[in-house]
Write a protein that binds this DNA or RNA. Structure first.
Lengths: 212, 212
DNA sequence: TAGATTGTTAATCGATTAACAATC
DNA sequence: TAGATTGTTAATCGATTAACAATC
């Protein structure tokens, strides 16, 4: 299934940033760019940019550089953003609603197909055009709709039971905003953690101790 | 000002995770733990844990291990969570409100002291107990209250002007949820980016190409 | 052709892991 | 004292940077 093997996480995590900068360059009308120029804009070395891109193929032209639009397109393909992986979101609180309403899932390779919560006053309401379902109907929904990815915006205590149920239903990718470390439980799951508390603590450390 | 020099970013970013696991261990009543045991719970090597901790001091006891509560406390100190750095949040949309209402700023080294927005219908309303101020009063507020950190929950286009103004007012730490790369503009600023789109794209890549 | 810039190999640097002496 | 586990030095591994031949 894997088109590219042995690409390190460090490289993968830089790809969306390339995509972002190239999208912006395209918007402001830049058509061509060298690794040197891009490196100055992004704060990387030209060498690293060429190494990163050549993990996936040769997208440039010697003596000339890279075509912005083409490269942006290629990186979009690499990331797989034209997929529409069915995703569900669990926990329609403030954060869950913010994500459901603001994330451009369609441009990021996903399609949000269901919201779930356990609070009676939320069940049946709508967030954008998606209804909030009773979390007790989660397994039924999965059996019927076969989502691929689940977003966790629930308290730590709720995650273990929920992720067990989802894993049984073959949902093995998680975008995890909770404090529970899902990855430790399911070795074959794909887990992307967004630990906002950790991020803020890191910032606190850096303020306290100077940036460098 | 810096208590510890030459601690690498890789180590710093692991500290909040140690803090999180130790807090949980404490809650479930574990009083003592060896680097070996902790490594199994966290999915690291015992060696790495000992190396990481010894960047900041010797918190263990040979032949015995680490006292959970004491170590948790020490890491809290290292991270500086007993500070109350004044923070402001700009952009009181869904995401901004979610952060203002849900983040336990007080336990993470910060105190949220002001919210700002440019939408007339939001100005004057309250989010939790904090009023939303007119973003045009941002500089006045900074001159008076001297916040240290700013949280950006606004569109890319708005960030550059705002961060310039804040930088002039000596706000040089940013928790950045926007797509604008603040760090490139102010070399001496402390910037912690939370690029949710990038995170989701990375997840998409990993689903498309297998986790490993 | 000459100049520029890629793709790729080789060198360096930093981070992780292993090993072990110190010591509780 | 014997056993266990740390703190720390040394070895390994991987990621970044530098160099340069290929080539547009």
């Amino acid at each position: 299934m894997s088109k590219w093997e042995n690409v390190s996480m460090s490289v993968i995590r830089r790809m969306p940033r390339y995509y972002r900068f190239l999208t912006h360059l395209k918007q402001i009308g830049t058509t061509r760019i060298s690794s040197k120029e891009l490196s100055e804009i992004m704060g990387l070395t030209a060498s690293q940019i060429r190494q990163d891109l050549n993990c996936f193929g040769g997208f440039g032209q010697q003596g000339y550089g890279y075509m912005v639009e083409q490269l942006q397109h290629e990186i979009g393909n690499i990331l797989g953003i034209s997929n529409a992986y069915k995703a569900i979101l669990i926990g329609a609180g403030n954060l869950g609603q913010a994500l459901a309403l603001n994330m451009p899932f369609g441009s990021l390779g996903f399609e949000l197909t269901g919201l779930f919560d356990n609070a009676p006053e939320k069940i049946g309401t709508k967030v954008g055009d998606l209804p909030v379902y009773d979390v007790r109907k989660l397994e039924d929904f999965c059996a019927r709709e076969h989502p691929v990815m689940a977003i966790f915006c629930v308290p730590r205590e709720a995650v273990e039971t929920l992720s067990d149920a989802l894993y049984r239903q073959n949902v093995k990718s998680f975008w995890n905003f909770s404090h529970f470390d899902i990855a430790m439980k399911y070795p074959d799951a794909v887990v992307e953690n967004v630990h906002l508390n950790d991020s803020l603590m890191t910032l606190c450390y850096r303020i306290s101790n100077g940036s460098d």
